[in-house]
Amino acid sequence: MPFTAVVVDDEPLAREELKFLLSNHPECRITGEAEDAAASLALVKKLAPDVVFMDIEMRGMSGFEAARQMLALPRPPLVVFATAYNEYAVRAFELGAVDYLLKPFEENRLAKTIARIGALKENAGEWASAVEKVAGLLEEKKPRVHKLAVEKSGRIRLLDVNEVIFGRARAGGAQIFADSGIYEYTGTMTELEERLGREGFLRVHKSYLVNLNRVDGVLPWFKGTYWLVMSDREHTQIPVSKNQVRELKNSLGLT
């Protein structure tokens, strides 16, 4: 069955080689390519491909970390890793939940990978199961810590994520509003969203990320929009972007 794919590798020759080999398989339609893991995340969010052929060892963010973030997206792709190091393949993928390609690429091996992807594509349940197993494998490699590193008066503190009420964008980072006070987060709002997205937080506005468990009330506003009343001492009211209303209502069970 046909599927779309994105190729990610920081070596141009490796990308070209894999694209050439994939071109021999008409069921695989390449919709994009990226030269590093960070660029691949933006591309995958934009194109929503079925499969990502991902190098592991890249400058900056590794293929493993990029895959973790991709698999947290609403429509995660199936990830096929490409690596020059056989120990990665043996260590990480013995479960067979995802395929892998060793460099230099072999046409026969690639053909088996394409056939396997096609078989999974024909069965939505098996496809979803394969993606879920990949996410589980990658999650095991990085212990999940329910803490957020923030700063105040030159000191770093690790906040329990349940203590965080909401985050607000500001120049150079974000402010974190928590039960114990207001702190600075030096990363971007996007990085904060990626960090807390699995912890019950929702980006309701380009400038606000809220802990849905710390919402005290919802105020209907004009033209189907809303404001949230948070559980901090000031009962801060936070606007909800119109394009986030549906997700908010689904998350909170609003009719």
Rank of each mutant, 00 (worst) to 15 (best):
G172P: 02
G60A: 09
L120C: 01
A128D: 07
E194A: 14
E94N: 15
P12V: 06
D232T: 01
E234W: 05
G118C: 08
A169L: 09
R15N: 08
A149P: 12
L95G: 15
V218N: 08
M1R: 15
L158T: 10
P49A: 01
A111C: 07
L212C: 15
H235C: 09
E247G: 03
L254N: 06
V8L: 09
R198F: 08
L192E: 00
E247I: 10
K142S: 08
A119N: 06
H235Q: 13
W221S: 04
N213F: 15
E139G: 05
H235P: 06
S207N: 14
D99R: 12
K206Q: 15
P12C: 06
T4P: 07
E27V: 14
V8W: 08
L120M: 06
R170D: 12
A67E: 02
P239S: 03
I156F: 14
L43R: 10
L252T: 05
E11K: 13
V98A: 14
T4F: 12
G253F: 08
I114L: 04
A5K: 07
A128I: 05
E132L: 13
N250M: 12
L219G: 09
S62H: 00
D179K: 15
S241K: 11
L43G: 07
E139F: 04
G172S: 06
K112W: 11
A174K: 06
P104A: 09
F222D: 02
R59H: 14
E17A: 10
V204W: 02
I238H: 00
I56K: 02
R214A: 09
P239K: 03
V80W: 05
A171R: 14
